[in-house]
Every structure is written in structure tokens, then in C-alpha cells.
């Protein structure tokens, strides 16, 4: 793929030690220990309510009631927040797209916050996700699957080493799912790190480890 030329040359690691989140005094899941280096990927598994989303949000530093340590390149993410966030792309259940802006405006905005403007890259990314013809369509008028594709296009427009994707397959059709798996493989080959949850089986990502939440 043409736009895929940014290698993550330096080796990155994310290390999660004894991470757990409590609601009230009750921990939602047993403490999680995990270490991922460049090229590693893991799927978090668990039944509904097992805390998959909560775990991912805690890793991103979005949970205030967490216990444990998350380190990015051996530095705590809570002490070196901006250093971690510059390398992180988190896509959750809320896609973070402004319904009143077009697909292109949304992607341009997020790209602009971290990188320089590159309008042709944004168009290319939308093209790849299969909604190239809708770049100037307002997100409000798109279907759930199209919105998901716009949000996922950010993995191309913002080439960062750590991807945390919460249920990225939701609302995607078969072609979309195959595209996502291919993009993830490319990402891992280039030295990226991937954490993902999914209820659909993911068969196409090479070397995907599994973590069962209890």
C-alpha cells in the first residue's frame, strides 16, 4: 500500500503491571500483567461485562479508579502523559467524530493535532477504507458502518506505533473486516503494537495472542 511507508524504527514497549479497576470496592477483573513490544499484538477476550473496555480505557489512562502501573518505554504513562499520548491511537465505542463536519474535516482535524496537514493522505485513507466517494459527506448522514470506516481511517492518517482498538469490527461488513485485518498486519510488520477486543473471531491477524479476562 502506497501510504504505508512510515516505519517505527525505534523499538517500543508497553508494560502493564498488576492493573485492575474497581467499582466501589469490588475489582472488575483480576490484575492484568502484560508486556508488548514492537510487532506484538493481543486480543482481550471475555464475556459481556468482563471489563474489556474498562481495561483498555485504564491502559489509556482514562480510568481514575485504577490500581497498577502502565509504562510506555519504561516510563509511567501517568507521569509522562503527553509522551505516551503522542504515540497512542485509541478508538472506542464512541467514535469521536463530529456529526456536523464532513468525513474529511474530521480526519484533517485529528491529523492536524499531531502531524502536519496532508489532505491527499486523508483522501487516500478514505479511498482505502472504501468510502472515498463520501469524503465531503457529513458524518451525521452516514450509516453506522460508514462512520466506523471514517474513524478507522485514522489508523492511516495518524501513523503512531500503539493502536488500542475496542471492538473495531462492529458494524463493518466482510470487506471492511478483511481490510482492517490487512491494515493491522501491515502495522505489526512495521513494528507497531496492537491491543484489540472483538466478539467476532479474528483469524487474519498474524501472531495474535489472547488474554482472557476473569
Amino acid at each position: 500500500m502506497a501510504v504505508y511507508n512510515a516505519d517505527h524504527k525505534s523499538k517500543n514497549t508497553i508494560k502493564i503491571s498488576d492493573l485492575t479497576v474497581s467499582r466501589g470496592d469490588i475489582p472488575i477483573f483480576d490484575p492484568v500483567n502484560l508486556q508488548l513490544s514492537s510487532g506484538d499484538s493481543i486480543q482481550i477476550r471475555g464475556v459481556n461485562g468482563a471489563g474489556k473496555t474498562t481495561l483498555l480505557r485504564a491502559i489509556c489512562g482514562l480510568c481514575n479508579s485504577h490500581e497498577g502501573i502502565v509504562e510506555w518505554n519504561e516510563r509511567s504513562i501517568f507521569d509522562h502523559e503527553s509522551d505516551f499520548y503522542e504515540n497512542l491511537l485509541y478508538l472506542g465505542h464512541s467514535l469521536g467524530l463530529k456529526p456536523k463536519l464532513t468525513a474529511e474535516q474530521n480526519l484533517n482535524f485529528y491529523r492536524n493535532l499531531r502531524f502536519s496537514t496532508d489532505k491527499s493522505l486523508v483522501r487516500q485513507a478514505l479511498e482505502q477504507t472504501g468510502i472515498g466517494g463520501y469524503y465531503d459527506e457529513f458524518v451525521a448522514r452516514m450509516s453506522a458502518g460508514q462512520k466506523r470506516r471514517v474513524a478507522l481511517a485514522r489508523v492511516i492518517t495518524e501513523p503512531v506505533p500503539l493502536w488500542i482498538l475496542d471492538e473495531p469490527m462492529v458494524a463493518l461488513d466482510i470487506h471492511g473486516q478483511a481490510w482492517l485485518e490487512q491494515v493491522c498486519n501491515n502495522h505489526l510488520e512495521r513494528g507497531g503494537i496492537l491491543l484489540v477486543t472483538s466478539h467476532q473471531p479474528i483469524s487474519g491477524i498474524n501472531g495474535l495472542r489472547e488474554l482472557q479476562l476473569t
Binding site: Y85, Y90, H93, G96, L97, K98, R114
Partner: peptide, 12 residues
């Protein structure tokens, strides 16, 4: 509501 706020906080 649309998740933009958390994306902004996570974008550095």
C-alpha cells in the same frame, strides 16, 4: 457525548 472529548485528551 460523541467521544470527541476523550479523543482530544488522548491526542497529546
Amino acid at each position: 457525548d460523541d467521544g470527541s472529548l476523550e479523543q482530544l485528551l488522548l491526542s497529546g
